[in-house]
């Protein structure tokens, strides 16, 4: 089944109401599927936990897949100022503690690749392998990403969520997907996107994402194996930069997905999961 067929089955409903208290006044919404070695999904600010389901179904057949909403996003507690990346990382560790998960693979996409990188740096004992899909930090920094997010923020403030969607859509999603699902897809998913988040959540998230400096030097400190997955139609990072980025990790490599965009599993969920499974199997075999 193509990624676009998966997209057509996208179900953004919250089916469960499971929460774990991770610090004073903060409960995180989470959902788990499957049994086995844990995989934890880290949300980009635009994609709350339900949006991962149709893109991780095969993995849930043989892994314990955990999704959750970051503090101040989705169904998790909203507590005023956007948490720092350090707080988001501490929240994740507390969530793992609450779920009695000793160590987990991480899959991150777009802005959440910052969080995955930081958790792998600060808590290597809790991390097995790290998948960075569409990283927002490049081999020379992340000035381009900050410029993009500043432009998105301006659009959000002046034209609301629908305007932001129209700004982001041709950048984030591949030309292949744009042609495949056409205008009905563009309009229909605008409705879904508009229901996912509030303006405040997105403003806070974009501002937080822009605060990371994306220093490439820190990647040398990531001890855990890292896989950079980039679509060759990713507007932020091309295949050459992806390979250069992967080479900065002590145990990093890159996989390039043909015709995929910034969120490559949207274009080819089965292909993405096959790449991820192979990587995780290699990591677990070496452990």
């Amino acid at each position: 089944m193509s990624g676009y067929a998966n997209l057509a089955r996208l179900d953004l409903a919250y089916r469960e109401d499971r929460r774990i208290r991770v610090r004073d006044g903060v409960e995180l919404y989470y959902e788990t599927r499957g049994e086995g070695t844990p995989i934890t999904l880290l949300n980009a600010f635009f994609l709350p936990s339900p949006s991962w389901r149709v893109f991780t179904e095969e993995l849930a057949g043989s892994y314990r897949v955990v999704g959750y909403d970051l503090c101040n996003h989705g169904k998790s507690s909203h507590v005023g100022p956007e948490p720092t990346w350090e707080e988001h990382a501490a929240d994740l560790i507390a969530l793992l503690d609450g779920l009695e998960i000793e160590s987990t693979h991480l899959i991150a996409a777009s802005t959440s690749t910052i969080l995955a990188r930081d958790v792998a740096l600060r808590h290597p004992d809790r991390v097995r392998g790290v998948v960075l899909a569409g990283p927002v930090f490049g081999p020379r920094g992340m000035r381009r990403q900050r410029q993009v997010q500043r432009a998105w923020l301006r659009t959000l403030e002046s034209h609301g969520i629908a305007g932001l969607y129209e700004h982001m859509y041709p950048e984030v999603f591949s030309a292949e997907m744009n042609e495949a699902i056409g205008t009905p897809g563009f309009l229909g998913f605008r409705e879904a996107f508009s229901a996912l988040s509030t303006v405040d959540d997105l403003v806070n998230g974009l501002n937080r994402a822009m605060e990371d400096v994306g220093d490439p030097a820190v990647l040398a400190g990531v001890e855990r194996p890292a896989l950079v997955v980039v679509g060759d139609d990713d507007f932020l990072m091309g295949p050459t930069a992806a390979r250069e980025l992967a080479a900065l990790f002590p145990h990093g490599r890159a996989e390039i997905m043909p015709k995929a965009g910034h969120v490559p599993f949207v274009d080819d969920a089965e292909g993405f999961q096959a790449i991820v499974r192979k990587f995780f199997e290699e990591v677990d075999a070496r452990a």
Partner: peptide
Amino acid sequence: SLRQAGVSSHALVALLV
């Protein structure tokens, strides 16, 4: 609102087509 009535994004896209 179709969304509030429970029409999924998939169903909305199919309806538009």
